[in-house]
Every structure is written in structure tokens, then in C-alpha cells.
Design a protein around this nucleic acid. Sequence first.
DNA 1: TCCTTATTGATATAATATATTAATAAGGAA
DNA 2: TTCCTTATTAATATATTATATCAATAAGGA
Lengths: 129, 129
Amino acid sequence: MKIMRNTVQKTIVLETVNSLRNHATADAIYDEIVKTHSSIGRATVYRNLNLLSELGEIKKIEMPKGADCFDHRTFNHYHAKCLKCGKILDVNMEYIKDLEKLIKKDNGFEFTSHDIIFSGICTKCKYIN
Amino acid sequence: MKIMRNTVQKTIVLETVNSLRNHATADAIYDEIVKTHSSIGRATVYRNLNLLSELGEIKKIEMPKGADCFDHRTFNHYHAKCLKCGKILDVNMEYIKDLEKLIKKDNGFEFTSHDIIFSGICTKCKYIN
DNA sequence: TCCTTATTGATATAATATATTAATAAGGAA
DNA sequence: TTCCTTATTAATATATTATATCAATAAGGA
């Protein structure tokens, strides 16, 4: 069987996501890492971000439109995206597990997860032209 | 002011979305149109799909991961994506307008829309290896 | 019929992400 | 410690989706 090796790159990627703590894209995370580890490859960052999210150590948020984001918070929660500045905010609202049960009955579809994404204008952008 | 002109391309794009009636991607719509109108440009299809969705004649569904889809149903509704075959299904469930009100109070965020996207395995794929 | 300009078709380009592959290094075995 | 296997990396090429550019075309009012 295939074993998983610990590499400095893997550690750095995880630590960077944990330190940034705000829905950074893979490229933003790469840019941050490159500042101190100039030789790291972009594909390595992408690879490890996906790996870490499969391991459940970070959470991948696949946004409609635009790049995927990575969050240090691993529990299920919802997101809002500002249509002006593009920032992703956490939405302070309980994860509605019932939704999946409700729909399964109706469609025979076997659900594994759901995402609610709110779109609108954030408070900062509201008062900027 | 800028007037909008009626073109055969615009008409064909709208008619194709209406006839396909199942969450086709822009490329799938282009492929369909090319069968009978071989000289149409890909960019023209993309352009008109976006235009028609802004006019409210069709609905653009921005999926996390993968290409945007276009639907002839223009009312708000939710979607489920099969993780195996990638198909998008309509979810038979009322649009929860309350969610936006609920969250606005909490965050000061001005919401314009929300999407719920369910992920899982559809009934067809469930019994295929 | 003519004229203005919105729209098209073709192509280039952007943004995001994965595939490929030789070189490197993790970590168990000797 | 040293060696060996192979998971992982860095670099690059490639794929996918979508928009930008721009000369040529055609819609539709004068």
C-alpha cells in the first residue's frame, strides 16, 4: 500500500492556511509561501491543498465563479461573497442538515453535502462608490 | 443610448436553450448549434448566453467546479450535482427567501440572491460500478 | 438606399487547475 | 550510518472555461 510521507512543503502549506485564516485562494496561498520559500512549485501548493482538504485538515470551498478558497475552519458552514470586492465571508448560521434528508426522500438522490452561497454587497463596499 | 439589435444568432441561442431544457453548458449549447449553423462563433454563443440571462430570458447557474450551466427555467430554484456523472438535477424544493432576511440582520450584508447546491450520487449512478 | 454602430467571427489572451516527468528526498531496512 | 525504494517535488506543458480585441458584417432607423 501507498504510505504518506511528511514533507516540509506539506507542513508549510498547512501552516500558511492556518495563519492566513481568511478564505485565501490557492494562488494567494502560493504567493504568501513564495515570500519565504522561493523555490516551492505552484503545483505542489495546489496538490497539498487538495490533499490536506481530503484529509480533513483544512476545508476547500468551491465557489461558483472564481477560484476555490481554502479555510482553516473545517466544520460545515455557509459563505457569502461580495459582488463588488469578491471577498468571502463566513455566514453566522447553523448548518441545516435537515435539508439533505428532506430532499433525499423526494429524489432518491444520495446526498453527501450541500452548500449555501449568498451573494450581495458587504458592509464595507456598501458605502464606496 | 445603446439600442439592442435582434440577430439570428441571438434567436438561435435562445431557441437552443429552450429546446435542450436540461442545464447545458455553454460549450454543449455551442456544439448543438454548430450542427445546423456551422459558421457561428463560440464567443458569440457565450456572449448571447450571458446577455439572455441578464435579460432574464434564461437562467445562468454558476456551479462550483466546472462550467456554468444555462437553464430555460428562469425562476429561482436549487440544484444537485452528481459527483459521478456530473449531471445537474433540479431540486424539488421551495426557494427559501427567509434565509436572506435572516442573515441580513446578523451581518449587515446586503443580499441579492442565494444558491443551495447539493452534491451526491444520483439514482442512475448508484447502481453502476 | 444609405449610414451609423451594435454585433459577429476569429483569434488571442486570461485565469484556474491538472498531467507529465526527471530529479529529489523521506523513511524503513540492512 | 548507509543504502534503497518510491512518494513527492519542481518545472513545464497542457486542459478547461471564459473574456478581450478588432476588423468585417449587418440591423434597422433616417
